[in-house]
Write a protein that binds this DNA or RNA. Structure first.
Lengths: 335, 335
DNA sequence: GAAACTTACGAAACCGGTTTCCGTCTGTGT
DNA sequence: ACACAGACGGAAACCGGTTTCGTAAGTTTC
């Protein structure tokens, strides 16, 4: 099918339309001064020959590649994927392709990849990673760069991320507004920023009602189900009559649910549980279905791509700073 | 840093080395007849200027882009990612980049993406998808194509996939060799090839011992935990004294484990359970830790890339057929 | 009816490498 | 001393678009 000897070039089109190659370029790109008639003839000829401009040639001449690089420090994990989808979705519309690179969390490797992307003349770069913790900047790069999820340490860079604090605040607020009074927070490792921010969200919601989070009930551990199960026991044995638990991830929440069930606690009757991530697999397998916070990663990816694109087109650099988007609470059966 | 005005070109290097641009190209690419001395001088000059050949120009002239396209019909789901990682891993070594496209399972969109990749002159294409079921061929494509996971319906294409049958055969064999006699199989939807093949594996292992799979104990359902939980009940109520269950996925297995626990069945003492996929999240959250079949998706991706690469370099087309790789049983605590 | 603009398009340079072809220089054989 | 092969490296064409610039024809202006 796509085998007609050799692809048509702009000269072939020119010959068929009876114009010069330069004119073909102008007609097809809608630039220059051309009579409507000529323009039409060229388009016709191009269509007849199924002309597809050679991408390399176009890039070479114009300096633009219609390609953006995506560097992830995570190995396309659960967090990167929705972001990628959003990016793809938004870029595909502009006929821009993405070149995906996995930095494996190694800054050296990351820099090599960046070199390579620059060398390939990408029009822009998206940097993303699993962690919410700030990451080192890529430094001076000749094309626009936007950081997603993991914000850049350099305030001159533009970062786009979601609001951890607001997320759990939403969750805790929901618990409080449905009559719960004594909340616990089960986080991941304390060294992770996300763990600490999410705790703050719970504290803020409590403070708004004149309540506070008992230090005994603010637990740090791992991002795993196993930890969630242990945490459930710890909370129950704490002596406090907890009636709501905000978890820092759906995995933890799932562990908590399992732990509670084993201890014959009714969810949500006795204790309500909220997760974080809205990770389908976890949410679906959980019993009862997990109420959780959705950080809308895909739309974050879409926005990142859109901003990057306009920076590329407008040629004005992205202005630095951190843009934070809100999360949404998805209410199901566990709270 | 990478801001030294304008990137060095082959002419800059030529001037510094006191040779002609053509000679620089030859020296750097190790072709042509050049004295060792000249070669060295050019390399030195290139290093001094931190010369990076312009990718578009190189592609334009040589016809090769050092880029392969990856089209996934799955939205970078759980199955595609390990494959992608393998591909990346294997290609990065050859300084080849990957261009990722998500076909969303829509053949029309898929074809547009392919057009775009061809137009961008990719050197080769990898097609992958979540489903094991065969998929339509992309048809005539001017570059090598390899299908991974979802094999192509056209026997003239080269497909690379894993052996579902052998996977569950391994699992069932393990159960039998540890003294289990009465096995059940809990599959996904019957319309999915994977479900049927995995059942056959169980049957083969049983047949090897002169046993067979009772039709009552070969269950089809969904790829979900919920289904696994139901299936556990169905198996127990079947009246057969089952002592081993082979599940078609880790999610199902996890549901089965939960179901059994609720019915006070001891795993693996009373019933042994084996999953399929070796999906870390599921395996880790399961209690007891899940014994499961690992299809080694990442190495499948690596092999696909390697084959593609050699086809690209050797210029001989890939010979058609389906290559099937074996799975490995990962023994943990559930069987 | 000439000057002053416009409009429409082609010629050619250009982007930055690769590759072919050919001339020169050196060394060898007679 | 002369022919000849082989090694070396330069000039220039080439890949396939884009873009600048110049000019011929057509239109307005006075």
């Amino acid at each position: 099918m796509t085998e007609s000897k050799r692809a048509a070039t702009v000269r072939d089109v020119a010959r068929l339309a009876g114009v010069s190659p330069g004119t073909v370029s102008k007609a097809l790109n809608g630039v220059g001064q051309l009579s409507p008639d000529t323009r039409a003839r060229v388009h016709e000829a191009a269509a007849a020959l199924d002309f597809q401009p050679n991408h390399s040639a176009r890039s070479l001449a114009s300096g633009r590649t219609f390609t953006v690089g995506v560097i992830t420090s995570d190995s396309f994990g659960r967090f990167t994927i929705p972001v990628m989808l959003g990016i793809e979705d938004s870029l595909a519309a502009g006929r821009v392709s993405t070149m995906l690179c996995d930095g494996r969390g190694d800054p050296v490797r990351e820099n090599q990849l960046l070199e390579r992307l620059i060398n390939r003349q990408v029009d822009g770069v998206v940097v993303t990673g699993r962690r919410r913790d700030p990451r080192p900047s890529l430094g001076e790069v000749p094309v626009p760069v936007i950081y997603v999820l993991s914000e850049s340490l350099d305030p001159a860079d533009l970062s786009l991320t979601y609001d951890d604090r607001q997320g759990t605040e939403l969750a805790a607020h929901h618990l409080l507004s449905t009559g719960r009074r004594s909340l616990a927070y089960v986080g991941g490792p304390e060294r992770h920023l996300a763990s600490r921010l999410r705790r703050e969200g719970v504290e803020r919601a409590l403070a708004a009602q004149g309540l506070e989070l008992d230090p005994d009930l603010a637990l740090y551990g791992q991002w795993s189900e196993t930890w969630g199960r242990s945490a459930a026991t710890i909370v129950l044995r704490s002596g406090h009559s907890v009636d709501g638990i905000v978890c820092a991830s759906d995995q933890i929440a799932r562990g908590v649910l399992d732990g509670l069930r084993e201890l014959d606690v009714q969810v949500p009757h006795d204790i309500a549980v909220v997760g974080f991530d809205n990770w389908e697999v976890m949410v679906e397998g959980a019993r009862p279905l997990l109420t959780t916070v959705d950080p809308h990663l895909e739309s974050l990816g879409r926005e990142a791509a859109t901003r990057l694109l306009s920076a590329i087109q407008g040629d004005e650099p992205l202005e630095g700073g951190v843009i934070t988007r809100g999360c949404e609470l998805i209410i199901r059966d566990s709270a």
